[in-house]
């Protein structure tokens, strides 16, 4: 079999994928008050992982990131559901969130919000689902 010439792709991927993941984290934290959030951040992280899959093969990527994406999806769902259900303990409607402003060292006045926990769940679910789909189609070839 002819060896594909993908030197450029592989070299660029090594750099680019980190930038994409960093940017996706930025998007994730920017959510709520600015455009961004768990869904978009998760999709972008998944995109970085897909880029890795394109440049290398599934085996290599699985060695670098040995995640079980189905468990990751379940974990994300669990976090999201439990965060929303936490409201039940205080006898307020489901999905009610609590937030306040805090003085944090380095960051200054920051708004801390339980919605971010919910968003972590969404983030994990999106990565998990996307990668499960890609792997399901990719594996059988």
């Amino acid at each position: 079999m002819k060896k594909p010439n993908d030197l450029i792709l592989k070299t660029v991927t090594k750099v680019i994928s980190f930038i994409i993941i960093l940017f996706s984290l930025h998007l994730f934290f920017a959510g709520h008050y600015e455009p961004g959030g768990g869904f978009i951040g998760g999709l972008m992280t998944a995109a970085a992982l897909v880029l890795l899959l394109l440049a290398y093969d599934m085996k290599t990527v699985n060695t670098i990131l040995p995640f079980n994406y189905k468990i990751m999806t379940a974990l994300g769902l669990l976090i999201a559901v439990l965060t929303s259900a936490g409201a039940l303990l205080f006898n307020v409607p489901f999905l009610t969130h609590a937030y306040d402003y805090f003085e944090l060292p380095l960051l200054g006045e920051t708004s801390l919000h339980t919605a971010v926990l919910f968003d972590i769940g969404v983030y994990l679910v999106v990565i998990g689902i996307t990668m499960t789909i890609i792997q399901t189609i990719g594996e059988s070839e």
């Binding site: 189905k70 468990i71 999806t73 379940a74 769902l77 669990l78 559901v81 259900a85 409201a87 039940l88 006898n91 307020v92 409607p93 489901f94």
Partner: peptide, 19 residues
């Protein structure tokens, strides 16, 4: 007050745990 939600929440939580 969350009573109407429970028949939705219980199966949802169960499904997630079963996963």
């Amino acid at each position: 007050i969350n009573l109407p939600l429970l028949p939705i929440l219980i199966p949802l939580l169960t499904a997630v745990i079963l996963m």
